[in-house]
Amino acid sequence: MELRGFSDGYGIQVASWAVDAKEVALLSGRVEYPFPEELRTNWRRPDSDIHSYLLFDGDRPVGYGEVWLDDEEDEVELARIIVDPELRGRGVGGELVRALLGPALDAGYSEVFLRVRPENAAAIRAYHGSGFVDVPAALMEEWNVGQPVPYRWMRYAGEPEQEQAGLGELRG
């Protein structure tokens, strides 16, 4: 699979992956279903600190995600991650997150974070499997002040332990 920059020509397809109002809200911040018409063709702002990507399997886009750069906080946030509903549960989400870590880490900021709804068990498994851990509860509570919902905040801690162990065995 290959991570590529997002082009607006895929906006309608990615918008169709949001299967209910909750998923539309995660992608757009708007509680509407289906995905708002005006956002389908005007998906991103190329002059912002938000970088949009698609994960491709051959010529087929299978996942979408954003890398938000924050100079003031010296951090990156992975956001608006979604996988084609036909491919969910097959590890594509984990591959997408690991691919997004490339540009996130290359940006040179000190931390990489993401937020997820606590009930999204599949996404949380993918994030754990990609090296993310929960931030301390007090910090999570602080960051949730003013948020539309209480998120589970996670930070990138490096390669997951099982991958580190496997790499050590290969090297040793």
Rank of each mutant, 00 (worst) to 15 (best):
M1P: 02
G5Q: 08
G5A: 10
S7M: 03
D8W: 00
D8V: 01
Y10P: 04
G11N: 02
I12M: 00
V14K: 00
W17Q: 03
W17L: 03
A18L: 00
V19W: 01
V19N: 07
D20L: 00
A21N: 04
A21E: 15
A21Y: 02
K22Q: 12
E23Q: 15
E23L: 04
A25Q: 15
S28E: 02
S28Y: 08
G29V: 04
R30K: 13
E32D: 14
Y33E: 14
E38F: 01
R40D: 08
T41C: 09
T41M: 11
N42K: 00
N42Q: 05
W43N: 01
P46H: 07
D47N: 11
S48D: 15
I50G: 09
H51M: 11
S52I: 04
F56A: 03
D57Q: 08
G58K: 05
G63C: 01
G65M: 05
E66C: 00
L69R: 12
L69A: 10
E72L: 08
E75R: 09
V76E: 05
E77P: 06
E77Q: 10
A79K: 01
R80P: 02
I81D: 00
V83W: 00
D84S: 07
D84W: 04
P85H: 02
L87P: 02
L87G: 07
G91H: 13
G91R: 15
V92H: 01
G94H: 06
E95H: 12
V97A: 03
V97I: 13
A99F: 05
L101N: 07
G102C: 04
L105R: 14
D106C: 03
A107M: 07
R115D: 13
R115H: 13
R115Q: 14
V116W: 00
R117L: 15
R117H: 15
P118V: 13
N120D: 12
A122H: 01
I124R: 01
A126P: 05
H128N: 11
G129A: 14
G129C: 13
S130Q: 08
F132Q: 09
F132G: 06
P136H: 14
A137M: 11
A138E: 15
E141V: 06
E141M: 06
W143A: 14
N144K: 11
N144F: 08
V145P: 10
Q147S: 15
P148Y: 11
P148A: 00
V149D: 01
V149N: 03
P150F: 10
W153L: 09
Y156V: 07
E159C: 06
E161S: 13
Q162P: 12
A165E: 08
A165Q: 11
G166W: 09
L167K: 09
E169T: 07
R171S: 04
